[in-house]
Write a protein that binds this DNA or RNA. Sequence first.
DNA 1: TAGATTGTTAATCGATTAACAATC
DNA 2: TAGATTGTTAATCGATTAACAATC
Lengths: 222, 222
Amino acid sequence: MGQNDQRHRNKNKIPMVVIKRLPLYHRYLSLLASRDINRISSAELAAKVGITPSQLRQDLSWFGSFGQQGYGYRVQELLGEISKIIGIDQAVPVVLVGAGHLGKAIANYQNFERKGFVIKAIFDNNPGLIGLVVNGLKIRNITGLKHYIQQEKIEMGIITVPAEVAQQITDEMVAAGIKGILNFAPISLNVPSDVTVEHVHIGDSLMVLKYMINHSKIKEEE
Amino acid sequence: MGQNDQRHRNKNKIPMVVIKRLPLYHRYLSLLASRDINRISSAELAAKVGITPSQLRQDLSWFGSFGQQGYGYRVQELLGEISKIIGIDQAVPVVLVGAGHLGKAIANYQNFERKGFVIKAIFDNNPGLIGLVVNGLKIRNITGLKHYIQQEKIEMGIITVPAEVAQQITDEMVAAGIKGILNFAPISLNVPSDVTVEHVHIGDSLMVLKYMINHSKIKEEE
DNA sequence: TAGATTGTTAATCGATTAACAATC
DNA sequence: TAGATTGTTAATCGATTAACAATC
């Protein structure tokens, strides 16, 4: 922070590769914070996440200056800044649609809260599931989805419904004001251009893994 | 294919970005094949996957020449070649460890087989789960894991156990001969250098999504 | 102060795109 | 054959790394 925040490169062209490294930094900084470490240099942090110190400093410089010459970074402060950049400095409310095995697994996934996300409601259309409680949340009737999203002004949703109904659910969510969807259904979702979809392709990860097994470590990554 | 396979660039440095696009090509080619489309040009396929024709042809050229001037690519043939490159031309056997909600969700995920992977066995340590049948597979006692992997010469495993036991399970799997692990447990796994781990970070996807919502589409991707 | 380490500019490296001769 | 489209080489663009002056 300081007197020179305005000379940074045009924020409208921050590269996607940089954005994708933010969660990585967040993860390691959280780890350090949980161990009550309160100071770290770019060299140390970079070593931990497996990149060069230059890249770490270069990445951060897209957003501002958060360190101090001769000292390094204050862990809590940098973690806070990165959280702000990502937009998780305030807990982000999320709806989960689909309370099958995958939905339940996600609802029970404790880590979300630590990452800044809170599942506020779970929806399903199965009468056998509606009313059941998962991780303290009663499964709601899907008929109330739209109203809930509007009422609570939720912007993010996670879809774990079968592929056949995923597009329909998406349309409802979008109509209600959802701006980002994490999609687990194995189908491409059509959304307007102001809505972002991240598709979780587990098959892709398996394929990359299989390739790497066969060709034993082509090039480092992650 | 043909008379000039040997002039390709050193296969030992195929860039990771290229490998990561292979599943994308595989997915769209599968789609085309399922629609009985049997011819496609690099221009058409590239448009579908959202890249330039140059990039598609450049990517493929790392592995060989699979097209025909003036014609394009035979969908089935190219799909087959890409499957071979990834290593999924023969069904790849996989073990799944952890039969909780996430494990069950994955075991029921029909898409795996279409992607070239077959879950051959599911393991858990919970007596209440052992013996239950999920998607036609009886949940086995975790005590038999090592023996099964060795016996069946399985190279890939999916871990959906709680974080507390993930490392221990990993060690067992590695000792039994597993070469690649898809890890869903929120913990970094230590493995020898000849074993590859792909970590599924759902939190990362949510963070990138949240950033993109706030900054409404920085740069295209996926 | 002297030593350490940042933020940034410049140099390098790698990936993407353009262009086109080869050829089906 | 004429038209289309590949595979590849060369040009461009972007991302990573190196280097260092600024400064805590």
